[in-house]
């Protein structure tokens, strides 16, 4: 009997003690939680990341690449030679974004579309990766003298790039990305033998503070006539309304086909390009 009374008193107390927590347990969130902000920018360094502008947001990006660091004082270590790619990217909805860009030295206009298939999530629905598909068309302008050639076709000026972007945010500091890539050239560069070139991109970031992350990116080419792979390092700095990205790379280019398959410079020779991206976002639609 004594035990019973004791037991009941205990029960009673526990009932009072836990009542607030009990209320809280009624609210237990059963929805799944997405891993967001896998990378700071829409690019790891040169290649596309799984990030895209939010719905209704227009992102204007200016990408600069200077000449090689080993080009001597006469060229002010590369700073005299600069080339630009300007681009606009717009988020149509939470999953889809479209963009258009223009590269100065390549005389190329590119337009791209990125679609997010699934997001890394935990909770009710768990999925280990964020997966996007990204495609772009590049229109490289040739001079009129080229087009006077009898063999010249209008379609020669096009090339295409298709990527599957597989990314995982391991923890709040570290994210990885794999990007299987297919590039199709209508007109082959001189050192290539096939129209369809396969490559695999590797990207990663390490966040050293809430606002700064270090990025690395490289591609390995599988059936290319050029065996020099791009290797790039970047620092992303997030400020109020901008993301600044500073890079060192052995490629000077900013569109997929060019930095993956048309890189001829070597880190070992000091042919390193310094560059930076500035992006600014504008909210067009709520």
């Amino acid at each position: 009997m004594k035990f019973n009374v004791f037991f009941i008193i205990c029960m009673l107390y526990s009932n009072i003690g836990f009542s607030q927590d009990e209320l809280l347990s009624l609210l237990d969130d059963k929805s799944s939680e997405y891993s967001k902000y896998i990378f700071k920018g829409t690019k790891v360094v040169n290649s596309a990341s799984v990030e895209m502008p939010d719905a209704g947001v227009l992102q204007f990006m200016i990408q600069h690449r200077f000449g090689t660091l080993n080009s001597g004082f006469y060229n002010f270590y590369g700073l005299d030679n600069s080339q630009v790619r300007m681009s606009f990217d717009y988020g149509l909805n939470d999953r889809l974004s479209v963009g258009i860009g223009r590269s100065s030295s390549l005389k190329a206009i590119d337009s791209n579309i990125k679609y997010r298939l699934i997001r890394q999530s935990k909770g009710a629905q768990t999925f280990p990766l964020t997966i996007c598909v990204s495609s772009s068309i590049v229109f490289k302008q040739y001079l009129t003298s080229n087009s006077e050639n009898n063999n010249f076709l209008f379609s020669n000026q096009f090339s295409y790039s298709h990527q599957i972007l597989l990314a995982r945010k391991v923890n709040r500091q570290i994210s990885f990305q794999l990007s299987p890539t297919l590039i199709h050239y209508n007109l082959l560069p001189i050192d290539q033998l096939v129209h369809d070139l396969y490559s695999l991109g590797y990207g990663a970031r390490y966040k050293i503070s809430n606002r700064i992350s270090l990025n690395i990116e490289t591609f390995s080419q599988f059936n290319s006539g050029n065996n020099i792979n791009p290797l790039s390092f970047g620092v992303d700095i997030q400020t109020g309304g901008h993301v600044f990205q500073f890079h060192l790379s052995n490629s000077a280019f900013m569109i997929d086909r060019a930095f993956i398959h048309e890189t001829y410079d070597l880190w070992s020779e000091g042919s390193i390009y310094f560059g930076f991206n500035i992006s600014r976002v504008f909210t067009l639609k709520d």
Binding site: S35, K36, Y37, P53, D54, A55, G56, V57, R172, N210, R211, Q238, G240, G241, V281, T283, D286
Partner: peptide, 18 residues
């Protein structure tokens, strides 16, 4: 309204991942 603010709010100020 501004999505970038939302990013900063989550990433830098409230650290919603933690």
């Amino acid at each position: 309204r501004k999505k970038l603010m939302q990013t900063h709010f989550n990433e830098n100020y409230l650290e919603s991942d933690l």
